[in-house]
Design a protein around this nucleic acid. Sequence first.
DNA 1: TTCCGCGATTGACATGGATCAAGGCGTCGA
DNA 2: TCGACGCCTTGATCCATGTCAATCGCGGAA
Lengths: 246, 246
Amino acid sequence: MNAPVFKNRDCGSCPIRHQAICSRCEPDELAYLDSIKYYRSYEAGQPVVWAGDPMDFVATVVVGVASLTQTMEDGRTQMIGLLLPSDFLGRPGRETVRYDVNAVTDLTLCCFRRKPFEELLRTTPHIGQRLLEKTLDELDAAREWMLVLGRKRAREKIASLLAIIARRESSLQQLSSPDGFEFLLPLTREAMADYLGLTLETVSRQMSALRRDGIIRLEGNRRVRVPDYARLTAETGDDSDGGVAA
Amino acid sequence: MNAPVFKNRDCGSCPIRHQAICSRCEPDELAYLDSIKYYRSYEAGQPVVWAGDPMDFVATVVVGVASLTQTMEDGRTQMIGLLLPSDFLGRPGRETVRYDVNAVTDLTLCCFRRKPFEELLRTTPHIGQRLLEKTLDELDAAREWMLVLGRKRAREKIASLLAIIARRESSLQQLSSPDGFEFLLPLTREAMADYLGLTLETVSRQMSALRRDGIIRLEGNRRVRVPDYARLTAETGDDSDGGVAA
DNA sequence: TTCCGCGATTGACATGGATCAAGGCGTCGA
DNA sequence: TCGACGCCTTGATCCATGTCAATCGCGGAA
């Protein structure tokens, strides 16, 4: 689990740079970022940090998927965020994390020690602005998810999750292709359940139902083929088309 | 529905200034803010903006409560945020809003036209930093709410809502008083249901149950007396004490 | 004072998803 | 090749909450 591709100290080589917090940096700013950054890798299933632990770095996801999870005293658990490549992890100005962070798949993070990063935030408006934008995007996503968790039925929840992952993994062109498209689901049934506020049995049943109804086809447990993206979004219950036209 | 107290052009008179985005501004920055700000007032129940509408201002809540609400195509509705005094409304850099904004109680906003505010954001790091902090706080709150919506039972949801409002409305000292404390619930049973992902009947039943069990006392429909804050937080299912000690 | 209407309460019943339980399928190591 | 384990599927049953409906009670208008 190394990340040999990114071992050189050059943000320009980073495949997710154009979407990450450094996307609008000047060369000298990039050089400073390079000087304080380092990579960390985790295997699927490994913890990154536990709720309440000190976290002395912030990071951008480079490869893989990380989850943010909260747990109740009796063990009930809710995934409250899914971080995909280019997403930002950590909170400047706070010493400890409030929720568990786990590697869902094999994961590579581009890390910055928190103190120098906070200093950079103070001196470099670009970064702060970009971070604000990404935080506002995350807030929008969290609010969209509140509708999913609070009001959608199991089938709609599953469809919403599949549509969201499909949108992040596929191009607009692929989504609207008449032949459909396919993608790899990075989550187990249990992780899907944790994200959707369901049990894994319900997730399994609804996946089977969507398969029976021709909304999706499954090749193995993880590979999902969507013959018609519009039919999938129609199952989400949302009143817009879920962002393809918008 | 005017806001005579705030009619003078002086942010220093604003009772929520110390928590709002302008809390760290220099005198000259405050003067600029003063020059572009204006107040708007709404009566309880009035819409502020509808989802999809253009919104040419951003604002801070000065008095009252505003709600952010999303609606599905069949009319199911989910409140995705509750804005109390000092909370920020609007998104710099975006022309339209994604969800309905309503005045839950009589409401006064301190508004800034969006373009000048964005300009200010570019030139005044304080404001951007403060806005980032407030956005990160909102994101934390949204994520906490995802746990409420996804995993808590009806009784725990109600207790969580009461505890959150109690914390925002009362001082630490009041919360830990041996005589208990009381507060005014700014929401109807239906609004509570919309926020909690429940029906109003379930809200009503669980409020009655909490009353029967002595967790709360009700004087009328809105006035809530909490004889023992610890007993209330014990009903939320959270593993921490909900923030009093923390 | 009476009536009216809205919000809240309460009851009876329906149901979606949880829970408990059994078994299938594919992969990996011996 | 086989067994074991992890992950998933499916079935039977239960229960928390939704749904539908009746009634209450307060505050405002006539």
